[in-house]
């Protein structure tokens, strides 16, 4: 187990380095930030001074080397626009996105597993079929459109919920969160639903397929032959087996929810890292874009590791061996 962890961490470090090089070179290829940062009226000397200050006059390999050396020390550069460390900018915005993604995940898991289980147990019932049809809708609706429609109905027509922004927040262990104020929750609801809908549909389909397979297994019949109650059979014997594929897929999807909440955050003006990314791309704020991508890779690695560990908890047949990874 420990050897497995060390090996995984080593691999993760390698992935981070490779990613850093790719991201840095990729970002170098798009546009010249100086054009955006300096007013057109500035004279040549001023321009030269700015370029030298930002280090943009040095050759690519030297810039890359400097970036890597600083990155190892936790310094991903300063934002050209805001003049503060890019990493700090991202960490400031990260809680908002994490909060959004986690709430969406909880919604997707609880609603999806419940509906999927139901549809799997009663595949021929009207409700079971309706759930499956609904999940196709959930797959196909574009994220931004759904967000706009929710705003239209609940914020504009009914005026029950706010249309955008984050609302009131409180500090919890130094992290700003809107989970504990009514105003914050009301702001969170619509974007979370928007972000969760696709994942919910995914979980419904996974849970339904798993349920239909598991209920046919001998061990379910044996559990019934033991005289167990239906709820014990479903919520212990069936549920634990269908959670294996669900956790695997949802774990990977959590990463993509955090990294690509961009559209939802833009529609709802949610001050998370997705919105920060869009703003930074528009302003050619290279350090922030790079830092964002590095943070995304880091989160993905972390989640994959967590999924693997969780997987071995759920399925006793999975051993985290030293050889495999």
């Amino acid at each position: 187990m420990l050897v497995y962890l060390i090996r995984r961490l080593g691999q993760s470090a390698l992935v981070l380095v490779v990613m850093a090089v790719l991201v840095f070179i990729g970002i170098y290829a798009i546009g010249n930030p100086v054009d955006v940062l300096i007013s057109p009226e500035a004279d040549l000397a001023e321009q030269q001074a700015t370029i030298a200050r930002l280090g943009l006059d040095r050759p690519l390999w030297e810039q890359l080397w400097l970036f890597l050396v600083n990155a190892v020390q936790g310094d991903l550069g300063r934002s050209f626009v805001h003049g503060v460390p890019a990493l700090r900018l991202i960490l400031e915005r990260l809680p908002a996105t994490l909060e959004l993604a986690l709430v969406a995940l909880v919604v997707a898991l609880s609603v999806g597993v419940f509906l999927g289980l139901w549809a799997g147990l009663k595949p021929d019932a009207l409700l079971g079929r309706s759930i499956m049809t609904g999940s196709i809708l959930g797959f196909s609706l574009p994220n931004f459109w759904l967000g706009l429609m929710l705003i239209l109905v609940f914020a504009v027509l009914l005026q029950w919920l706010p249309a955008g922004g984050r609302g009131e927040t409180v500090d919890l262990l130094g992290i700003r969160t809107s989970l504990f104020t009514l105003d914050g929750l009301s702001h969170l609801l619509l974007p979370a639903i928007t972000l969760a809908l696709y994942k919910t549909s995914l979980v419904i389909r996974l849970a339904r397929a798993g349920t239909r397979e598991v209920v046919l297994q001998d061990y379910v019949k044996f559990a019934r032959a033991k005289g167990l109650s239906p709820s014990r059979v479903i919520y212990v014997h069936v549920l634990k087996n269908i959670m294996i594929p669900v956790v695997t897929v949802v774990g990977l999807e959590l990463g993509s929810m955090i990294a690509f909440a961009v559209v939802t955050e833009t529609v709802f003006a949610w001050p998370g890292i997705g919105k920060l990314l869009i703003d930074s791309i528009v302003n050619l704020d290279r350090p922030v874009v790079v830092a964002y991508l590095m943070m995304t890779v880091f989160i993905f690695i972390l989640i994959n590791l967590a999924v693997d560990l969780l997987y071995s908890l759920l399925d006793p047949r999975v051993r985290l061996s030293e050889a495999g990874a």
Partner: peptide, 25 residues
């Protein structure tokens, strides 16, 4: 029936590899 199954009348299945739930101790 549930009260009788596994209590007054029990059953053993054909394939022992399939009768026990793989994820429960």
């Amino acid at each position: 029936l549930r009260a009788l199954r596994g209590n007054r009348i029990a059953m053993i299945f054909q394939d022992p590899m399939m009768t026990l739930n793989p994820v429960l101790r």
